[in-house]
């Protein structure tokens, strides 16, 4: 039952052949795969970390930029408001001046027109006076009297033989 023979050597050779082949086909590839996986997971974690840090930095940067942009916009708005206020004041002032000028001009024109109207009125009054005087005279000389006067004149002309020419 217990008999030491060459089987011992054969089994040891078996063992070493198995050791070599399993190392080559089982442990080696699996170890490599496990290490590769660990490496990749580590790499992915590192990458994720650095990416998160980058993102954090970018966020901070954008926040700052946004703040800057906001204050700049506020400044621009303030400036524009100031300018607009100033301009509005200018416009009002100019409008006032213009209105004043226009008023003065119109007043002058009114004065002129007044003067002209007075002159015209004077002239017309004179004309009317003449007309009225004429009418007054006309009313005193009626048509028949006129004809009589004209006829008397003509007959006198006849008498002096002047009508024979």
């Amino acid at each position: 039952m217990v008999n030491i023979n060459t089987t011992l050597i054969w089994e040891v050779i078996n063992f070493f052949i198995l050791l070599y082949l399993l190392k080559r086909y089982l442990y080696g590839p699996i170890k490599e795969m496990l290490e590769k996986r660990a490496e990749q997971i580590n790499g992915d974690l590192d990458q994720a970390k650095s990416e998160r840090e980058d993102a954090e930095k970018l966020k901070e940067e954008y926040k700052e930029k946004l703040q800057e942009a906001r204050s700049e916009a506020q400044q621009i708005i303030d400036e524009a408001e100031d300018r607009a206020n100033k301009r509005a004041k200018d416009i009002l002032k100019k409008a006032d001046e213009k209105a004043e000028k226009l008023k003065e001009k119109k007043m002058q024109e009114i004065e002129q027109a007044k003067k002209e109207a007075l002159t015209q009125l004077r002239d017309q009054i004179a004309g009317y006076t003449v007309l009225a005087a004429g009418k007054l005279i006309q009313e005193q000389l009626d048509v028949k009297k006129h004809e009589q006067l004209v006829n008397e004149f003509i007959s006198e002309l006849d008498k002096s033989k002047l009508g024979e020419i």
Binding site: W10, N14, L18, L22, Y25, L26, P29, M33
Partner: peptide
């Protein structure tokens, strides 16, 4: 001996199994 023949057979079975289990290693 019969034990040696079974020993050889075991080695072959183990190698076939190892090859079968690791035929396509993926990440």
């Amino acid at each position: 001996t019969d034990t040696l023949i079974v020993g050889w057979a075991s080695v072959i079975i183990i190698l076939i199994l190892a090859k079968f289990l690791t035929v396509s290693l993926k990440l």
